[in-house]
Amino acid sequence: MAVLVLEPLEADVLEWLAERHVIQAAPDLAEAPLTLREHVAQAQAIFLPASIALDAEMVRRAPV
């Protein structure tokens, strides 16, 4: 996956992203921090809502 979307976005914004990138829209991951960490390792970009704290463990799991 290239772009992980965890916050609700307008349909036309998701469509625009999907035309340019592989996306996974998964707002439910915002409520599952352990599962989210697993997905972070596969993402090149993430749209996070302000309610999600980006901690050091999540950053370490991100691809280089």
Rank of each mutant, 00 (worst) to 15 (best):
M1I: 04
P63A: 03
P33I: 07
D12P: 04
V64H: 01
L17A: 08
M1H: 07
V13W: 08
V13N: 08
V13F: 02
Q24S: 09
I23P: 00
M58Y: 08
Q24R: 13
D12S: 14
A53E: 12
P63K: 08
V64K: 02
A56Q: 12
S51I: 10
A43K: 00
M1Q: 07
V22C: 01
A45C: 02
A41D: 04
V64D: 01
L9T: 11
A45W: 00
R37D: 11
A50I: 13
A53T: 12
P27H: 10
L17H: 10
A32S: 08
R61T: 14
M58K: 05
A32K: 13
T35S: 14
P33L: 10
P63N: 06
L9K: 08
L29Q: 03
E57M: 03
L54A: 05
L17T: 08
D28W: 15
A2N: 11
F47W: 11
H21A: 07
V5R: 03
A53V: 12
E10Y: 06
A11G: 10
L14R: 05
D12Q: 13
L34K: 14
L14C: 02
A2G: 07
E10M: 13
V13P: 02
M58F: 05
E38T: 15
A26F: 06
L54T: 02
A62V: 01
E10A: 13
V59G: 05
H21I: 04
L48G: 01
A30L: 06
D28F: 15
V3L: 06
I46F: 03
E7M: 07
L6Q: 03
A45L: 01
Q24K: 08
I23M: 00
A18Q: 10
R61L: 15
Q44Y: 02
D12I: 15
A32G: 02
E31V: 10
M1W: 06
R20N: 07
A25N: 12
R60H: 11
A18I: 04
I46S: 01
